Simulated assay, not measured.
Amino acid sequence: MESTRRKLIDLLSRYPDEFVSGQVLSEQLNITRSAIWKHMKELEKDGYVIQSVPRKGYRILKNPDKLSANTIQWGLSTNWLGSRVIFEKTTDSTQVIAHHLGREGAQHGTVVVADEQVKGRGRLNRTWYSKKGDGIWMSLILRPEVEPQQAPQLTLLSAVAIVEALEEITDLAFYIKWPNDIYVHDHKIAGILTEMQAEQDQINYIVQGIGLNVNQNREDFNMISDNEPTSLKIETGMAWNRRPLIQVILQQIERLYERYLKEGFLPIKTMWEERAYRLGQPIMVSSKNQNWQGIFKGIDQDGALIVTDQKGRDHVLYSAEINWRSGGHE
């Protein structure tokens, strides 16, 4: 049923300024004209505005602004990522739902999306501001056939994919702050939280949470000081339809994921470093009860941070508190 409706949307979308007759749709989809009419009514429930004219046929006047599993999948040109979409209007956290689905055997590429999270969280259990309708809050279930120690590479991969997706639709420059944040104009706009269920030598599943600030206004962040957040609306001066944003992000993640499986991490590493926040700049490192200054040199093959100290020695850091610029920890 959903695949038929998805094909129907694809057919109508090919001719945005023309009517497509019921007969043509019936022949293309191998269903009756009465069934076509019923599908149109379901599409209207999801927010599509469809014009129907006798002896001419149907055409789409307006795509939906609202999110649902259906609207996310219609027009999504991926092979497997998003082949199953779970949508919740309000939930505690998409991560919680995705973990439950992962333990129950949900297929690789399942995506959980929420319009609102009331207990959204980021790295180190920090609260993630997830107001209804203002952002993209979603979690991906992945079952990669790689070693557990390679899992951090997938965070870096998705960061590159999100930056490429955002730069595809805006004229802004975005940067990746190690290990999991997306920045624009020195302000955080998105974050990634990757969690894994694994045995010693095998990943059972990975849940990757993505939070992207889209339509918040400046005053929405007045009570939040962490990372001085921003949104696409603040940076571009316009509101955004979240559905196509989700689609382009999923499409970019799938593309890079498949390249990663074929070519390994090196191409991803190169793309990540091209977009790295403050690469080559001095930073302050706090680790093992010591504070020291160094130069951010890049990342190594497993995604760890490489910092060169004042004596020219390289340090590979898997976890540390970093002061990326003067003013305190971020």
Rank of each mutant, 00 (worst) to 15 (best):
H99F: 12
M196I: 14
G120E: 10
Y183F: 14
I136L: 15
I234S: 06
D186H: 15
L193R: 11
R143D: 09
G135V: 02
V113C: 11
P148F: 02
N180P: 00
A173I: 12
T110H: 03
N215V: 02
V118M: 09
N125Q: 15
H187Q: 15
T236N: 00
G109W: 05
E104L: 15
Y205A: 07
I141D: 07
G122N: 11
M138F: 15
Q150V: 03
T170K: 00
G102D: 09
D134A: 13
V112D: 02
E116V: 03
W178R: 06
E228R: 14
G120K: 10
M223W: 01
Q216L: 13
K131F: 01
R121W: 10
G120I: 11
R121A: 10
D181N: 12
G209V: 02
T230L: 03
L212T: 02
N222W: 00
I189D: 01
Q149W: 13
L212S: 02
E235V: 00
A198H: 13
R103G: 09
R126S: 13
I136H: 06
A98W: 08
V118C: 07
D171W: 02
N215I: 03
W128Y: 08
E168V: 00
E167D: 07
Q117F: 04
Q216D: 10
N222M: 01
A114Q: 04
G211Y: 11
K119A: 15
G133C: 11
D220Q: 08
I210R: 04
A106N: 06
L156C: 06
I162E: 08
L157K: 05
V160A: 11
Y175I: 00
T155M: 05
Q150D: 14
Q107H: 07
P229V: 04
A173F: 08
V184I: 13
A98P: 10
L157S: 06
F174L: 08
I206N: 02
E195S: 07
Q197R: 12
E167T: 04
G209T: 02
D186Y: 11
A151H: 01
A198G: 05
V112E: 03
V146K: 06
N215K: 03
E164M: 07
N222S: 14
Y183E: 01
Q208C: 12
A151V: 05
L232A: 08
E147P: 00
W178C: 06
D115M: 08
V112K: 01
T110P: 02
V184W: 04
L193A: 09
V111C: 03
